[in-house]
Every structure is written in C-alpha cells, then in structure tokens.
Amino acid sequence: MADLKRLAEAFIFAAEAPLSFERLCLLLERSRPEVRPLMQELLTEYSAGQRGFYLAEVAGGYQFRTDPDCGIWLRKLSKERPLRFSQAALETLAIIAYRQPMTRAEVEYLRGVDSGGVMKTLLEKNLLKIIGKKDVPGRPLMYGTSRQFLELFGLRSLEDLPTLKEVSALDPELAEAVPLEPESDN
C-alpha cells in the first residue's frame, strides 16, 4: 500500500472540491491523530510561493490551488471570462457575508436600494443560500453565504473574512474611487 502521506496528497489532488479533514480520515481509513501530522507536513511542503501551486485550506477543506500571482497568465487557459461582479453584487455579498442571516429587507435598508434582482442572481450562482425564515410578521426568508462563496474567495471559513473596519469618518480613498467628470462650462 502506498505511503499514507502520498495517498492523502493524491486524494486531495484528485478530489473535485476541497476535501475536509474528516472525509480524508474516512477515505484513508485512519484516525485523526494519525492523519493530522501528515497534513501539517503537506501544508509545509506545499506552502504558497514555492511552486506554481500550493495546498490551500478552503471552505473547511484542503485543495491544491495555483498561486494567485500566476493568475493573469493562467486566465489564458480558460475560454470563459472570469466572473465579474457588479458593484451591487459585491455590496450585497459583503453585507450578507458579514451580517448573516439577513432578510432581503435588511439588505435593502443597508444598501438603500432594491436588491431583489442581485440576490436572485447570487442565489442562482449558489453563492447565497436560504437558511431559514425570520420570526417576524410575514416570515421573510433569511439568507446566508454558501460553501461556494468560501471556495470562490479562498476563505477557510467566515471568520477568515477581512476584518470589517469600524468607520467613524469618511474614507478619503473612496472619493477617488468614483471619479467625477470635470465641471462642464456651458
């Protein structure tokens, strides 16, 4: 039988989606204490920046991923253009990611704008999921982010989200983000 570490590596390599530690133990038919050190070794051996790919911890599992700095080159490989999120979609995703569970009305209050269409698209892309109904009149649906959301942004879990800034003043950077046309003279 192949050496356990090589087998673990092969499993992760061939798996369709990030492979969780629990599932890996089941596949290898070994106990967690036996597998854990192997994974530590693999993570070190395949740490980012050494090869074209690295062993990433994503969405509660392990997955080999190419190094982000190769990204612009690798895009040539795929025929499809990568997902481009609209500003509205990103705002909606961010709000739900940080504040979940959220109802549509709550998202719309925060954004100040109708968000039904955006949320439907995100649901169809499996980035959002319905996680229940809120116990208020009308029992509106509550939304959260999905496992695919974590996979898409390479996050281990929701705790991995960038820390939300506590803002008490206007961010001067943002003013530049939206350029204003120079005053017209007529």
């Binding site: 990433a56 997955q63 982000p68 990204g71 690798l74 898409l152």
Partner: peptide, 10 residues
C-alpha cells in the same frame, strides 16, 4: 481577494 477562476485555479 484572490478569486477562483480569476486569480486562482484548481
């Protein structure tokens, strides 16, 4: 963030 199929590939 590095995004799957945009910056990072599997």
């Amino acid at each position: 963030l590095p995004q799957l199929e945009r910056d990072v590939f599997v």
